[in-house]
Nucleic acid binder design. Structure first.
Length: 936
RNA sequence: GGGCGCAUAGCUCAGACGGCUAGAGCGCACCCCUGAUAAGGGUGAGGUCCGAGGUUCGAAUCCUCGUGCGCCCA
C-alpha cells in the first residue's frame, strides 16, 4: 500500500494568510491612521504628485460647534473619496480642511453659560471665551474626521478666526468697497428695547402675547373704481401693532384677490361709511360689530387698486396701495398696513415700491421727534392705547378687540421685542451689474446635478441686496469709523486695507483692545467734514461673508491652493449659502467664479424618507456608529448611495452594509490566501500561453471593471463604483471564477504552470481591486495592500499608488460573447443538478455527471471539459441526438470512484497501484512533491 | 403659500432613441457543502414601475393634474 503517512489534505495547497476574516475595524482603523500620520502619508502624497496637473477640492468649512452628525459625515466622506480618487487618477489634489469659527451659536452658548456676568464683560473677554469654545470643537471634530479616515492637511487647517484668514476677509471687503459695492442703508431688525440690542432670529423665543387688534379706515384719495360712485371711500386695514402706524407708508393688497366696495351704517354714529376690504371677509368683518345694514357697491381685483392713494389717518401724508403676494384672507381685512421700518415683509415690499423706511423709535423703544408730538417720548407698547384712542376720536377706528397670538420675545430678558429700522452695511447686488455678471459666471460653471444651475440662478436673480453687518461680538469687525464731528461712517478701501494689515499682524482682537488713535494712520480725516476724531463702530461681518471669502484666504493667499478651485462640494442648501456668498464676493472682487464645478448632495433622512429631527427621535449618532461598525463600513455605505438625492440612513442599513463589507473583505482574503507563496515569483515570468480559457475571460472581465469604475469615479458616481465592484466580487468572482479555480489552486502542483497561471490572475485581481476600492475603504485597502505578494517585501502605501489601467492584451469581444452561451448552459446544468439534489442522488456537484444531448454535438464537444470545470462536475458528456430540437441537459450520479485527494469522481481512480485512492492527476502531483514515497 | 428636486422588488441600484414576459446584487425562504468555515455554492419567491387622466399601434420612459417626501424661501 502507499506509504504516505500524512493525510491527503495536507498535500493540498489550501489558502493561508494573515489577512484576518474578522475585520475588527474599530481596533485596526486607528492603527492605520496612526501609521499614516507617523509616516506623513499626506506629505508623501504631495511630493509624489508634485508637478502634476492640479485639481483642488476646496473644503466648505463646517461650523465649529457640536459633534459631527450623519450629514457632516456624508459630506466629509464624499469629499475624501473625491480627493483620494483624483489623487489616484494622477492629479495633484491637496486637501486643506477648514472650519467656520465665528458666529452667533458659539457666542450665544458662551453668553448663556456666563449668565448675568456677561453684561459686565467687554468684547475682548467674551471673544476670548468664544475662541476657546470654537477651538474645543475644532479639535474634537478634527479627531472625528480623522477617525473616518479622511486624508488631508489636518495640522494646517484653515480657520476663519486665523489672523491670516481674517486678513483675507478684509482684503475682499476692501476690493468691494473700492469698486463701490458697499453702502449703508436702513433695514428693520429685531430689537430688544430692554437690553437695547439687536437680536438674531435664533435669539427669539415665541410666546403667547395679548395685543390690541384694530380695524382702521384710511381715507382714499384716488384710484377707487368710478363705477362705485361718490365717496368718500376708505380702505380698511387691520393691525396688531398700532404703534407702527406712524411709520405707515403703504397698504398692501394681493393682486389676485377680489376686493369689495362696501357701504355700511356705522352703529355708533348712524352715519353711512364706504370702505374697501377683501370680498371674502365682508360678512366676517361686518359681523364683528354686528353691522347688518351693509351692501356691496362693487368689486375689483387687488391689482386694479395698485397705485391708488390714501391719506394717513393722523399724519399729513398720502401713500399708495401696493401689491404683495403674502397678503391673505386668513385674518384681518385683506389689506395690510405696511410700515417698511417695522416689518420684514413690509421692508421687502417697501424696497420694491421705493417707499420710505420710517422708524421714529429710539434704542429704548421710545418715539422720537420724528413721531407725532402726542406720542413723542412714549414707549411703543405703552403708546398703543393712546394711538387707538386717537383713531377712535378722529373716527378712523372701525373696531378694536384684544388678540392672543404668538409673538417674539427676547431670549435673555423674556420681554417682547420690536422691529426697528437701523442703518446696516449692504452689498449692492445691482451696482456695476454684479447680479448680471454673477449670472454669467454661473453659466460658465459645471453644476452637478444640472438643475443646480437653475436653482442658484433663480435665487441670484431674485435676491435683495446683501446685508453684511451684524450687531454681535464674535466675528470679524467691520472696520468702519464713526466721525465724531459729523456722525457719518468712514470706510474706504484704504482704511479697510489698513485694518487688513493690522488684523494679519495681531488678529482681529486689536479692534477691541487698542484705542482707535493707535490703529489709524496719521492724518486720517473725514471725507465728509474733514474732522479727525473717530470712534470704532461696533458691527461685525455676516459669517457668510467670512466663509464666502475663502477663495481669497485659502485659494489665492496664504494656503496658495490655486484659484479657481476645480470643485466645491456641499449639500444642496448651499445654493443659497456658501456657493452664493462665494461667487458673489469672487465676481465682485475678482470678476470670476471661484469654482469650475459645483457638486451637491442631498440630505440625510431616515429609512422612511423623513428628515432627521429630535421630535421624530430618528437621530443616528455618527461618531458612535463609526466606533461600532467601523469607518470603512460607513464609507462604503456613503459610497453606495446616489447622493444627488436624499440619503436614507438607518442602523439597519448600516448593519446590512457590514454584510456587504464582509463579502468584499472575504474576496480579498481568498485572493491573499492563495497568493501566500506567490511573492517569490516574478509575475512577468508567467507565460501568457499557460493561461487557461477562463483566466483570459476573467482578465477580460476585469478590464471592463477597470473602465467602468474609473469612468464612474471621474463622474463622481461612487454608487456605480460600489455596484460594479461589489457585483463583480459576488457574481463573476465568488460564485464563478474563484469557486471554479479551487481545484487548480488546491490540487495542482504548487509551482506548476497551471497553478501559477491562476495565481497570476489572482494577483492582478487583488492589485486592481485593492486600488479601485482604496478611495472608498482606505483602511481595508491598506491592510490588503500590506499582505500583497511583493517581491522585496517593500511596504509602501496603496494610497500613493495610481489607479490601474486596463490591459489590452485581455480584451477579446469574441470571447465575451462565447462566454454568454457557456454561462447560459451552466445555468441549465445547475438546474438539472438541483433536481438530482432534491432526489437525494447527489450532494456536491462533483458527484455528478452531466449529459448534453444535441443535434449539433460539434458545438459543445470542444467545450466539454471547460463546462465540466465551470460547473465543478466530474464529467460532461455530449451525445448526438438528431431528434433534439434544442439541447437536452440531464445529470446523473457519476459511475466513477471518488479521488480521496481532490474529491473528483474519475475513471482513473484505483488504476494506479501505488495510489489506489487517487486520480491520475493527484498521483502525479504527489509523486512530484514527495519523490521518496515511490520507494516505500 | 412659492421656487427647485425626488418617487422602479424589503434594501441599494440598472432600465440611450417610447418597443420582448421590467433586470442585477443584497436580504429573505428552501437545499447542498464542510478543503474561503462567524466562510462557500445552488434553487426559488418578491414589482398596480407613487396615483389619476392624456398623447401613441404601443408608456416605467413623453404631457397634464394630483399625492408623499426633501431642500430653500415666505
Amino acid at each position: 500500500m502507499a506509504p504516505t503517512t500524512k493525510p491527503y489534505k495536507e498535500t493540498l495547497n489550501l489558502p493561508k494568510t494573515g489577512f484576518d476574516m474578522k475585520a475588527n475595524l474599530t481596533v485596526r482603523e486607528p492603527q492605520f491612521q496612526d501609521r499614516w500620520r507617523d509616516q506623513d502619508l499626506y506629505g508623501q502624497l504631495r511630493r509624489a504628485r508634485a508637478g502634476r496637473a492640479r485639481r483642488i477640492l476646496h473644503d466648505g468649512p463646517p461650523y465649529a460647534n457640536g459633534e459631527i452628525h450623519m450629514g457632516t459625515l456624508l459630506n466629509k466622506v464624499l469629499k475624501d473619496i473625491v480627493v483620494r480618487s483624483m489623487s489616484m487618477a494622477g492629479f495633484d489634489s491637496p486637501y486643506v480642511p477648514g472650519w467656520d469659527c465665528h458666529g452667533l451659536p458659539i457666542e450665544h452658548k458662551v453668553v448663556k453659560d456666563l449668565g448675568p456676568k456677561a453684561a459686565s464683560m467687554d468684547h475682548a473677554a467674551i471673544r476670548a471665551l468664544c475662541q476657546a469654545e470654537a477651538m474645543k470643537w475644532v479639535d474634537l471634530q478634527r479627531d472625528q474626521f480623522r477617525r473616518l479616515g479622511v486624508l488631508g492637511d489636518w495640522e494646517h487647517p484653515y480657520l476663519t478666526l486665523d489672523p491670516r484668514y481674517e486678513a483675507g476677509i478684509l482684503d475682499v471687503l476692501a476690493d468691494l468697497v473700492e469698486r463701490g459695492f458697499v453702502h449703508r442703508q436702513l433695514k428693520p431688525i429685531h430689537w430688544c428695547i430692554t437690553d437695547r440690542t439687536a437680536l438674531a432670529e435664533a435669539e427669539l423665543e415665541y410666546q403667547e402675547e395679548t395685543t390690541p387688534s384694530i380695524y382702521v379706515n384710511f381715507e382714499m384719495v384716488t384710484g377707487v373704481p368710478e363705477s362705485w360712485g361718490e365717496g368718500p371711500w376708505h380702505a380698511m386695514i387691520w393691525t396688531t401693532t398700532p404703534w407702527t402706524l406712524p411709520a405707515n407708508v403703504g397698504i398692501a393688497a394681493h393682486p389676485d384677490l377680489l376686493y369689495a366696495g362696501v357701504e355700511y351704517t356705522e352703529p355708533a354714529t348712524g352715519k353711512s361709511v364706504r370702505t374697501i376690504l377683501a370680498a371674502d371677509l365682508v360678512t366676517k368683518v361686518m359681523g364683528l360689530r354686528k353691522v347688518e345694514a351693509f351692501r356691496e357697491v362693487g368689486r375689483c381685483r387687488g391689482r386694479d387698486l395698485e397705485h391708488a392713494e390714501y391719506r394717513h389717518p393722523f399724519l399729513d401724508r398720502v401713500s399708495p396701495i401696493v401689491l404683495a403676494g403674502y397678503v391673505s384672507v386668513e385674518d384681518g381685512t385683506g389689506l395690510v398696513h405696511t410700515a417698511p421700518g417695522h416689518g420684514s415683509e413690509d421692508y421687502q415690499t417697501g424696497r420694491l415700491y421705493q417707499l420710505s423706511i420710517l422708524s421714529p423709535v429710539d434704542e429704548s423703544g421710545r418715539f422720537t421727534d420724528q413721531a407725532p408730538d402726542w406720542v413723542q417720548g412714549q414707549q411703543v407698547f405703552a403708546a398703543n392705547p393712546g394711538i387707538v384712542a386717537h383713531l377712535k376720536d378722529s373716527g378712523h377706528l372701525y373696531h378694536e378687540m384684544p388678540l392672543v397670538h404668538s409673538y417674539p420675545h427676547c431670549w435673555r430678558c423674556k420681554k417682547p421685542v420690536i422691529f426697528r429700522a437701523t442703518e446696516q452695511w449692504f452689498i449692492a447686488v445691482d451696482h456695476d451689474d454684479l447680479r448680471g455678471r454673477t449670472l454669467k459666471a454661473i453659466d460658465g460653471v459645471g453644476w452637478h446635478p444640472e438643475w443646480g444651475q437653475n436653482r442658484i440662478e433663480s435665487m441670484v436673480s431674485l435676491r435683495p441686496d446683501w446685508c453684511i453687518s451684524r450687531q454681535r461680538s464674535w466675528g470679524v469687525p467691520i472696520p468702519a469709523l464713526g466721525c465724531n464731528t459729523c456722525r457719518t461712517q468712514l470706510m474706504t478701501a484704504a482704511t479697510v486695507r489698513n485694518f487688513r494689515d493690522l488684523f494679519r499682524a495681531h488678529g482681529a482682537d486689536v479692534w477691541y483692545t487698542r484705542p482707535v488713535e493707535e490703529l489709524l494712520p496719521p492724518g486720517t480725516s473725514c471725507p465728509n467734514c474733514g474732522g479727525n476724531s473717530f470712534r470704532k463702530e461696533g458691527d461685525i461681518l455676516d459669517v457668510w461673508f467670512e466663509s464666502g471669502s475663502s477663495h481669497r484666504g485659502v485659494l489665492s493667499k496664504d494656503f496658495e491652493l490655486g484659484y479657481p478651485a476645480y470643485l466645491y462640494l456641499e449639500g444642496s442648501d448651499q445654493h443659497r449659502g456658501w456657493f452664493q456668498s462665494s461667487i458673489l464676493t469672487a465676481v465682485g472682487a475678482n470678476g470670476t467664479a471661484p469654482f469650475e464645478h459645483v457638486l451637491t448632495h442631498g440630505f440625510v433622512v431616515d429609512d422612511k424618507g423623513r428628515k432627521i429631527s429630535k421630535s421624530l427621535g430618528n437621530y443616528i449618532p455618527a461618531y458612535q456608529m463609526t466606533n461600532t461598525y467601523g469607518a470603512d463600513v460607513l464609507r462604503l455605505y456613503v459610497a453606495s448611495m446616489d447622493y444627488a438625492n436624499d440619503v436614507p440612513v438607518s442602523e439597519r442599513g448600516i448593519k446590512e452594509m457590514s454584510e456587504a463589507y464582509r463579502k468584499i473583505r472575504n474576496t480579498f482574503r481568498y485572493l491573499l490566501g492563495n497568493l501566500e507563496d506567490y511573492g517569490r515569483f516574478d509575475s512577468e515570468s508567467v507565460d501568457p500561453s499557460n493561461l487557461h480559457e477562463m483566466d483570459l475571460w476573467a482578465l477580460g472581465q476585469l478590464n471592463e471593471v477597470i473602465r467602468d469604475v474609473r469612468a464612474a469615479y471621474e463622474r463622481f458616481e461612487f454608487y456605480r463604483v460600489y455596484q460594479r465592484v461589489y457585483q463583480f466580487c459576488a457574481v463573476e468572482l465568488s460564485s464563478l471564477y474563484l469557486d471554479v479555480l479551487k481545484d487548480r489552486l488546491y490540487a495542482e502542483a504548487p509551482e506548476g504552470p497551471d497553478r501559477r497561471a491562476a495565481q497570476f490572475v489572482l494577483a492582478r485581481l487583488h492589485d486592481v481591486l485593492t486600488r479601485l476600492l482604496a478611495p472608498i475603504i482606505p483602511h481595508t485597502a491598506e491592510e490588503s495592500w500590506d499582505y500583497r505578494p511583493a517581491p522585496n517585501g517593500e511596504r509602501t502605501s496603496v494610497h500613493l499608488a495610481e489607479f490601474p489601467d486596463p490591459d489590452p492584451r485581455w480584451d477579446d469581444p469574441a470571447r465575451a460573447s462565447r462566454w454568454e452561451e457557456l454561462l447560459t448552459m451552466r445555468e441549465r446544468i445547475f438546474l438539472s443538478l438541483e433536481g438530482l439534489r432534491k432526489a437525494k442522488a447527489i450532494g456536491s456537484a462533483q458527484e455528478a455527471k452531466v449529459r448534453i444531448a444535441t443535434a449539433t454535438p460539434d458545438r459543445w464537444s470542444s467545450d466539454r471539459d471547460l463546462l465540466a470545470t465551470l460547473c465543478i462536475v466530474s464529467e460532461v458528456e455530449v451525445i448526438e441526438d438528431p431528434s433534439a430540437a434544442v439541447e437536452a441537459v440531464s445529470a446523473e450520479r457519476s459511475p466513477h470512484a471518488k479521488c480521496e485527494r481532490c474529491w473528483n469522481y474519475r475513471e482513473s481512480v484505483g488504476r494506479l497501484a501505488d495510489h489506489p485512492a487517487l486520480c491520475e492527476r493527484c498521483a502525479r502531483v504527489i509523486e512530484g512533491m514527495n519523490p521518496s514515497s515511490a520507494i516505500g
